[in-house]
Design a protein around this nucleic acid. Structure first.
Lengths: 233, 233
DNA sequence: CGAGCGTTTGAAATCGGTCAACAGCAGTGG
DNA sequence: CCACTGCTGTTGACCGATTTCAAACGCTCG
């Protein structure tokens, strides 16, 4: 985990997805002060680990990560996939211990937001505190939706939900939401959706035969978006 | 939904579960100002509803509520059960719209925390903002755990998790965690755990035959706590 | 005390899990 | 550059847990 690359929030292309809107230039500079460093991650590197003392929260700059929730007895579950602009580490603010482990699925980079400095900055720039609050609340909503999907949906619907969610988030960030590379393996999709690897594979072929998507290895193309949407609300 | 009963945080018995620790008397009085009103709910009354504009967050004073997450197409899922001391409505802070509906499972009462007033108070008493932040983060952790359970566990384990969680929370609040009334129906347990009513019923009888619990209608008694714990980690 | 809802129980059907074998892409080293 | 090896993903057959459909039971409330 290398620290380097002085950050500069005011010129960062992720700014619009990462920072609260309508910061003054002066505020931007102060935020830039706060986010002094970034960290580069190679595939499979951990950004933080379950059980560790929290020191910072992070903003993904590029690449993609997964977060895994785990219990003492070794049960593990992928609870989220993260794309550039996503804020991660938010599950640690309750007791200052990370509840999940964040692992890079490809070479990635994240901005480090030292938390004690963040807190003091929040007092000066209230919109930063509000921004964090919003992210926390949004994460709750996402988790509820995940619970809904795991609790109600059949394999097909869960997979459709997964694909559409990914597609939406890619589009939102300005990349192609209709054709992209899956950075996660079938095992990680399976864990995320609460099913087995083989079921993921079989269900993908079902969706292919239904001419909703095309898949070759980890390359995915959406053929019939509305068809997919009728599967996952 | 009746407004009445001037609140008084400084003498409220829920204080220890509800407010941040170590508030000065003067701060307590200011918080009391904020929480001017409570609302009484009869069974099945809604505290707030999915899609509504957020005006306040709430703290349960007595009784018990469930929150239901729902999608446009009518899928619904119970995402949480709430006991006295719990803060609810936290899923609304992202876009000021409630994402869930909170429904009383018995006659209940909640303190109303008008959100705009809360925000201005937060500036004066930073520990209040921090307290909210912690609650938000804890809710994320709880949701992740729920996802883990739905994704990995078989019916028995899910039910054990449900019972133990309820038991722990009752104990924490000083009531009897070994023998209590379930305020929710089998249908609500089923929704929460992502299974069917009949499976809940059958699985309960399994746990009874295994001499882990006794159940009669909605009265539940834990016979073998450690046995239950071996089922749910 | 009776009506009605909530709960339990039974039997049959189904979806997904498990076990096992195979295919295919990728990265290594000759 | 190609062959070998290993990891990742696919496919098939079988099995089991949960769902589904159906009916009976038993609280609880009016």
């Amino acid at each position: 985990m290398l620290m380097n690359a002085k950050s500069n929030c005011s010129t960062c292309v992720m700014g619009q997805f990462c920072l609260p809107h309508a910061l003054t230039n002066e505020e931007l500079d102060r935020v830039g002060e706060l986010v002094k460093n970034r960290t580069k991650l190679k595939k499979n590197d951990r950004l933080y680990q379950h059980g560790e003392k929290m020191s910072a929260i992070y903003n993904i700059r590029f690449g993609s990560l997964k977060s895994e929730y785990s219990t003492e007895d070794g049960q593990r579950q992928v609870v989220g996939f993260h794309l550039p602009g996503d804020m991660v580490g938010l599950d640690s603010l309750d007791n200052n211990i990370y509840q999940t482990t964040a692992i890079a699925m490809e070479d990635s980079e994240a901005c480090i937001i030292k938390f004690d400095e963040f807190e003091s900055l929040s007092h000066q720039i209230p919109s930063m505190a509000k921004h964090l609050q919003r992210n926390l609340s949004r994460e709750i909503g996402k988790a509820y939706h995940h619970v809904l999907s795991l609790g109600n949906d059949k394999a097909q619907e869960k997979l459709a939900y997964f694909i559409l969610d990914l597609s939406d988030r890619k589009s939102f960030r300005g990349s192609n939401g209709l054709e992209f590379e899956l950075k996660m393996g079938r095992d990680e999709i399976a864990s995320f959706l609460g099913m087995e690897i083989e079921t993921v594979s079989r269900t993908l072929t079902k969706l292919i035969k239904a001419e909703l998507i095309e898949v070759s290895y980890r390359h995915l193309k959406i053929i019939n978006m509305s068809g997919l949407r009728t599967l996952s609300p």
